[in-house]
Simulated assay, not measured.
Amino acid sequence: MMPHPIVIKVGGALLDDEKAARQLMTQIKALQKRRAVAVVHGGGPLVETMMTGMGLTSEKVDGLRVTPDAHMPVVCGALAGSANKQLCALAIGAGMTPTGLSLMDGNMISCQAISNQLGAVGQATPNSSVLLELLIKEQFLPVISSIGCDDNGRLLNINADQAATAIAQLLGAELLFLSNVEGVLDELGQRFTTLDAMQLATLSQSGVITDGMKVKTDAALQAATELHRAVFIGSWHAAPEDLLNATTGTQIQPEATKAGEIS
């Protein structure tokens, strides 16, 4: 039996750390020899830079960027354009053959707007795996931005953690959330090695997990529940194998297990 594919979600801040980005792509190339891999990415810092340069401002509600439709050309250009192509270039530099995609390509993900308050911000639902399976079979590396659209063709900005969850559901894949933090941290900055739904709820209610990390853990818990396996949150400085082997990062469990151990 072939091992499950792996979906690796990387935050946009990776593009500000060229050494780490090149190191991660080298690790993905090695991993790709044994497992099918897809990369899903955000690009928040790049979006902020481009919007500031154009005199635009934005706010966040519960970790999600409020995105008026008028801002979508900038957001789309930053994520599906600049960030996506920079990651594809890094993949080529590591000796891989990337294919830059968005959530709407191949009808892989269905999207719909969440609320009028958030504007053109959507939620993602798995739809068709045909395109991704074809690419993976031919050893291409899908590099997927978190830009989607609804059935009416309205462009939508999807939180990249939630986008990665939908892609992992689509492929029945293991899911790694990689950023510039080593995992989910307690109030003293120590890393939880594993957490379940009850503990995550308690940490959220007490204000230990907030904003972007809450969006990330919510997405991880949703994915763990749908996939019936742990989802991993960790640093892009760590090897993916170390995260999968639970030697670093935080495992988010799909149901209550012994958890809360501090490394």
Rank of each mutant, 00 (worst) to 15 (best):
R35W: 03
L221E: 06
I147Y: 04
S58C: 12
H41E: 09
E48G: 13
V215L: 11
L31I: 06
P240A: 09
V61C: 04
L56D: 04
M51T: 06
S204I: 07
G77V: 07
S58A: 15
V61R: 14
L227F: 00
T247Q: 15
M213F: 00
P254N: 04
D186F: 02
Q123M: 13
L243P: 00
M104K: 15
N180Y: 04
H4G: 07
A238Q: 13
A197L: 04
T26W: 01
Q222C: 08
E255A: 10
L175P: 00
A219H: 12
E48N: 15
S179F: 10
I209D: 01
M104W: 12
V40R: 08
T210P: 00
A230C: 01
L221N: 05
L156I: 10
I136F: 01
L135N: 06
K29W: 00
T248S: 13
A163S: 14
S110R: 15
L185C: 10
L118N: 05
I158K: 01
C88S: 11
Q123K: 14
G260K: 08
Q123I: 09
N116S: 13
A220C: 07
D105N: 13
E174C: 11
V130N: 08
G63R: 01
M104G: 05
L176H: 01
D211K: 09
R229W: 02
K19P: 00
K214V: 01
A30E: 15
V7C: 08
P240L: 04
V10I: 14
L156R: 11
V121Q: 04
V37A: 11
I147H: 01
V181A: 07
G122E: 01
Q169K: 14
A163L: 02
N159A: 05
Q123F: 03
L244H: 09
M96G: 11
L15I: 14
V47I: 15
L90E: 02
G12K: 12
G183T: 04
N127S: 15
A166F: 05
I6H: 00
Q139G: 00
C111E: 08
I209Q: 03
H71E: 10
A256F: 03
L188F: 11
K214Q: 15
L87G: 10
P45C: 09
Q251Y: 02
K19S: 13
Q162P: 00
I28F: 07
L178C: 06
L132M: 05
D218H: 03
V130E: 10
Q86V: 08
T210Y: 02
G53K: 05
D150F: 05
G12Y: 05
L24P: 09
L118V: 08
S58M: 13
K214N: 14
L141P: 12
V74H: 13
A197G: 09
S82R: 14
T250C: 06
D62A: 13
M104L: 01
L171I: 04
P254Q: 09
V215Y: 03
I6E: 10
V40L: 09
L195T: 05
M96D: 11
G249I: 13
A13K: 13
P142Q: 04
G100D: 08
